[in-house]
Design a binder for these strands. Sequence first.
DNA 1: CGACAGGTTGACCGTTATCAAAGATCGTGG
DNA 2: CCACGATCTTTGATAACGGTCAACCTGTCG
Lengths: 233, 233
Amino acid sequence: MKKDNQTSCIHHSGILSCVSQVPIFNHLEPKHLDEIMSMTRSISYEKGEHIYHAGDESDSLYIVNKGRIRIYRLSESGKEQIVRILNPGDYTGELALFKKSQHESYAETMVNTSICIITREKLQTLLTKYPTIALKLLTEFSNRLEQSEKQTTRFSTETVETRIALFLAESVDPDSNSNEIILPMSKKDLASYLGTTPETISRKLAELEEKGLIKQKLQKKIEILDLDKLLMN
Amino acid sequence: MKKDNQTSCIHHSGILSCVSQVPIFNHLEPKHLDEIMSMTRSISYEKGEHIYHAGDESDSLYIVNKGRIRIYRLSESGKEQIVRILNPGDYTGELALFKKSQHESYAETMVNTSICIITREKLQTLLTKYPTIALKLLTEFSNRLEQSEKQTTRFSTETVETRIALFLAESVDPDSNSNEIILPMSKKDLASYLGTTPETISRKLAELEEKGLIKQKLQKKIEILDLDKLLMN
DNA sequence: CGACAGGTTGACCGTTATCAAAGATCGTGG
DNA sequence: CCACGATCTTTGATAACGGTCAACCTGTCG
């Protein structure tokens, strides 16, 4: 981990784009964005470093500027599950900012990554100064919660094959008219994310391909041939 | 469903106790609580009625005053999963207040139940007038999200037996020195909540009893005999 | 007291995890 | 730029966890 150029040269370090692309801030005026930027600091990580571990004191919001981060948990019996992948503009650490303040998950960079950090006190200041940020956060939390509960329901009621199919279907970009998707992670990680094993992922994708529903191209690239059939299984 | 006495006789209808026991409000002064109460209305339901269905327009926060409510979801393939049980002081409907405004879950009363309702507009008014409510909400959402993600991880990495054991362990009241727990729902519902079937619940509880870790008393009542062993499985 | 939902038990089988080993891919350093 | 090792991916064989179906039991409530 290495500290970047500080707030004196924020525009060079990419903090502007970092902060301005975050949904909870991007409704603010430029001058307010400037203010927020002046409250952040920037840090770079090599691939494979941890930004925080479970149990760490939580005191900051981390916004991804460049790179990719894997958030995962360890279950009571020590097995790892990937909760979410962060791309530029996404953030993490927000949970612990409002509760008892210990991380329960791990944040690990998947590639070289630079992030912006806002400490809890500074965020609290912002929240009282710009109450709309709190509303944005509430919206985000709502969506995440809905998403998480949906995921829980899927895990408890759907077969692995259905979960994979749903994941693929939801990965299709509705704007693009191409039905090609790029997996945002390795199949090993996808297995963890979907609550199964790499072996099963491999087999089920092969099955779906045999059925003519998808076509696997180069690693990570999959074309959806029949979206409807994929979903009505 | 039947509309209760309106706000003119709020103290008779139990709205006071209703609102004042809600975590997001209970830090406010009595006179502010009065104001909030004047913004609510009260409704009673018979056992088995639905307060809302998935797909319903969402426009209110529902606070349980008396009774018990079961929140459940239907998965893509139509199977039901219980998400949470609401007791007096708990609330629901908050998710849809900040997002696209359609319920994705079902709320069904388990017994005769009376609730208080605050509409979205009134809640928005409260949020801008008392920003601390937003902070309380953020805290609540954080906890729920953490909880939900933990649950997701358990579903994807733990065996049914472990999930049951964890549920039992977490149901023990740490204040009381008795290790007896009362299941908050039928075993059928518990099965749904834990992502399994009634048959498996029955079998696993029997197993745990054979191992001497628990003792089943009258329906719903279970004594934990060896909490440590229960958890280190 | 009877009916009905909830609960238990048994037999069976399908889905998916596990173990093992071979093959593909990626990143790294020479 | 190539070669190597490490990691990821695939494929096969096997086993077990837990779901399903069916029958019976039990408690609860009108």
